[in-house]
């Protein structure tokens, strides 16, 4: 249920940015979550609705993009999407690997007027 805390933090940012930009209504909130963050979109949507209640973003649509896990092999340099979480390099089999994408927890933008 880390979704609740993350939704609360998101709503703080959304309300702040809307005020800064002079928006009276936020119509859409665009976020990106990496696969490794293990956010369940339905639960997040529910938590977000509670978090933005009675704010300028109360009616905002939530657009969640899930970013698939992408690894880079530090041995041969190949980038690849693993079949399961964190397997070895699909090209050379090395275990010397790093996460390129999958840990994102970003608010990309808000839309409104």
């Amino acid at each position: 249920m880390h979704e609740i805390k993350i939704a609360e933090e998101l709503s703080v940012i959304v309300v702040d940015k809307a005020r800064e930009a002079g928006l009276s209504v936020v119509e859409r909130v665009n976020v990106s979550f990496g696969q490794l963050v293990q956010i369940v979109p339905d639960i997040f949507e529910f938590a977000f609705r509670e978090a933005v209640r009675d704010t300028v973003a109360a009616e905002a649509a939530l657009n969640i993009e899930i970013i698939p896990l992408e690894m880079r092999c530090l041995s041969c340099g190949a980038d690849y999407n693993p079949v399961e979480n964190y397997p070895s390099c699909r090209t050379c089999g090395a275990l010397d690997i790093t996460v390129v994408h999958g840990k994102e927890l970003f608010i990309k933008s808000i839309e409104g007027e």
């Binding site: 940012i13 930009a21 608010i107 839309e111």
Partner: peptide, 16 residues
């Protein structure tokens, strides 16, 4: 008129 405000910020910035 609707406008898009780019933010590109880690949601857990405050925690970080």
């Amino acid at each position: 008129m609707t406008m898009e405000i780019r933010i590109m910020k880690n949601i857990l910035d405050r925690n970080q």
